[in-house]
Amino acid sequence: MENRRAKVRDIAAETGVSIATVSRVLNDHANVSPRTRDLVLQAVERHQRPTAPDGPPRTVYVRCPYLLTDYFGLIVSSIAETLRLHGARMVLDAGEASQGSDVLAGLPDEPGVDAAILILPPEDDERLVALSRRGFPFLVVDPRTAPPPDVPSISAAHLSGARALTSHLVRQGHRDIGVIAGPDVWLAGDARLAGHHAALAQAGVLPSPHLTRHVEPTIDDGVRAAGELLDGGGRLTALVCFNDKLAVGALQAAHARGLRVPEDLSVAGFDDIDLSRATRPALTTVRQPLQEMGRLAVTQLARVLDGHRPEALHLELSTTLVVRDSTGPAPA
């Protein structure tokens, strides 16, 4: 029984679905989509194959040209664990120093590297397309810009997540809502802003460009942008921040102005990193499936390396609204 539970956990980690979903497939329950059922059954088949090696282990180059903090660290750790389950090795290229290096052009000629996973790559579409045309298998996680049609990618459902967050505030009576967004050339930021506008439109509220700030996603930038919005002469009742670090900065700016959260001002974030649970009050936020993104990236890449074409090139994983204490009814 213990071995069966361990196998179920391994298959769940390898496929990026929950343990409950794996159990439903193994018990032949009807309420599982055909695509998910096939994915799980293929993983089960791999686990039942003889374990004798039939060649050298595959090596996957993982590029994350950023500091491996909580956000990127969760994705990279999940990729590493899932590659290990697949019997593959990982070559990690991480840290901001690698942002300026042109590594993509040389990847197909890198000895012993079979494929790559690129996390939020700073390279433009032309370089991604050039890499794809050379027949080198790779996948993009959390693309910065809209990925080219033939480049596989995995991201979160940013638009629906932001729409759910702003709808939550609208139901609380908020109409004067400031937005602290990420860089204005960021695909995720554009999608989140669209989701925010959609929720406002449903409530009959026109978005106000002067209530939006585009900044780098840091706590210091959150402090500065929130200060500008709060000191701008309007009567804001809520601030929506497009990551949790910006929201922490907004909390600091509100505290410096003697504003109580959420009695005077509601503040919300996005991502649901550990920091969101450490603030006082704890942050209302949108949970991104960061670990699931890493697991599914490896699973999709493994299918490509096994000679299968991905059923969907651009996958969006659902997000979850997490309501905590930093949001409340709009002040009268």
Rank of each mutant, 00 (worst) to 15 (best):
E123G: 00
E2H: 15
G100E: 09
V185F: 15
R260S: 12
D150P: 05
P121H: 07
P111I: 05
L165S: 10
L246N: 04
V91Q: 05
R175I: 00
R63A: 15
V60M: 06
L313W: 13
A97L: 10
I119H: 07
L83Q: 12
A256Y: 01
D114M: 03
Q252R: 15
Q99F: 06
V141P: 04
V40P: 05
V25K: 06
E2S: 15
G222N: 08
D10E: 15
V60T: 13
S33D: 08
D220F: 06
H158Y: 14
P329R: 15
L259P: 01
A88T: 01
G135C: 04
R213Y: 10
N27H: 13
R257T: 06
D102W: 09
G100D: 07
G232Q: 04
I117Q: 12
G232P: 09
A278F: 11
P53L: 14
P209K: 04
P310F: 07
V25Q: 06
H255S: 13
H168W: 08
F242H: 15
V103M: 11
D271G: 03
V22R: 11
T299W: 15
D306M: 07
G173R: 06
T69C: 06
D125A: 15
G161V: 00
D54K: 14
T327R: 02
A12I: 02
D109I: 00
E311D: 14
L74I: 08
V304Q: 10
P183M: 05
